[in-house]
Design a protein around this nucleic acid. Sequence first.
DNA 1: AATATACACGAACAATTGTTCTGTGTCAAG
DNA 2: CTTGACACAGAACAATTGTTCGTGTATATT
Lengths: 243, 243
Amino acid sequence: MARKREGLSERHRKIMEYLAVFIDDAGYSPSIREIGDAINVKSTSLVDYYLNQLEEKEYISREGRISRSIRILKPIESSNKKLQEKLKATARTVSAAIDNLVTIPLSGRIVASAPIPVPSSDFGYFDPESGVEIARSLLPAREKINELFALEVQGDSMIDAMVNDGDIIIMRPAQQANNGEMVAVWLSDKDETTLKYFYKEKDRIRLQPANPTMSPIFLENSQELRIMGKVVMVIRQYKNELH
Amino acid sequence: MARKREGLSERHRKIMEYLAVFIDDAGYSPSIREIGDAINVKSTSLVDYYLNQLEEKEYISREGRISRSIRILKPIESSNKKLQEKLKATARTVSAAIDNLVTIPLSGRIVASAPIPVPSSDFGYFDPESGVEIARSLLPAREKINELFALEVQGDSMIDAMVNDGDIIIMRPAQQANNGEMVAVWLSDKDETTLKYFYKEKDRIRLQPANPTMSPIFLENSQELRIMGKVVMVIRQYKNELH
DNA sequence: AATATACACGAACAATTGTTCTGTGTCAAG
DNA sequence: CTTGACACAGAACAATTGTTCGTGTATATT
């Protein structure tokens, strides 16, 4: 183990990182034994020893004899970006950190038999009750989040897109698409909405189902389809009763 | 003391106020005895009793057997203006920044041809880089988040569960399941892992594919399957290159 | 070589803290 | 009047958790 009088050792950093992750995650701080397990230290006294040092240097503070009372006073620097955010978020108790969460308006249901209810473009305040909350880290890096909207799938008609009744799909409005993108399209001749991979070939358009065992649809006339948007994400929740 | 009514009693309010002030002030939540002292209740059991009610109504959440693990989920309304500010501030901070976003360790890949890599010990330190961040609002109300783990699906073999290559499934370890729950099972005779709806019938077990067009599997001998966990959520990301 | 210092383990201990169980009184519905 | 839900106290219990102390081992300093 590196010996350093100045600054923080590797152990100190690991503790700080663990504290940040744990507190950010759980909402309360870990016990000494939990810290020990996390950083691979066998004795509680040694953890206490390090914690005292961190307290000395004012990276953390804690109340004597009170369990789980560790607070982070200042963040350490980290090369890991996501971790860095957590460190900061945990350190300053106030404000922000909310941009980690993105709320996407749930603007209706999507059925095979009807066009997509694209959200009214005027887009003012929407009821957060009917929103889907997503961690920004799950979205493509520079997705324009304020354009996104969510739809709940109704019916079994999109199983060839591997999408089930009750699933939530998150999409971005679009009138055209690039090859290989998953799009929601309205097929005017069939009168239905469907989700397919989009491919423009020489003189036709191929719509490929997500399910690899199923066959594509070919369209010679681009009038026959209208692209409604690009699919960004699909979420399926299983509400198993607990325990 | 006021009888049972729809909303919260005076005691509930007092507890919520005390929690808000204490947490905002100290940075960690009070113990049951501290709460008892504050609201003039002599027995710890009665405090526990009220806390359970508040948990039931989802004003707070806490982890069993873990000290000082109370989190405020939503603020109450207060006639006291100054207090009201604090209540909101605390609730927003705690619930939005800390409680709303949970990080679930991504502990490997799931393939049809091999058993599930269930995470090693229940709580090791995990690299936040390899985690999936989920808004708590997307999870069942009381899901024990620290038990959850995520797996990335490899291969097309689970399309009958409406799960595609690259999808992320979030699950909770379990050895047994209730009827209607989506579980991950290891079929020893077929030597494969699969996702199915679980149904125990009189003298056999029925495993129903999520895809309603496909037929179930029946198992007379319970030795033939091993339940590895319950599926909580499935996430599919389409990384369309933007623009 | 002697010594100080930082790092490490483990066990024992005591305090804190959550849980459970028994009992009591009140009040409203039947 | 009986019953049962609800509100409460108190005590005993068990688990969690912080603290302390004795011991050992490197490494560096003098």
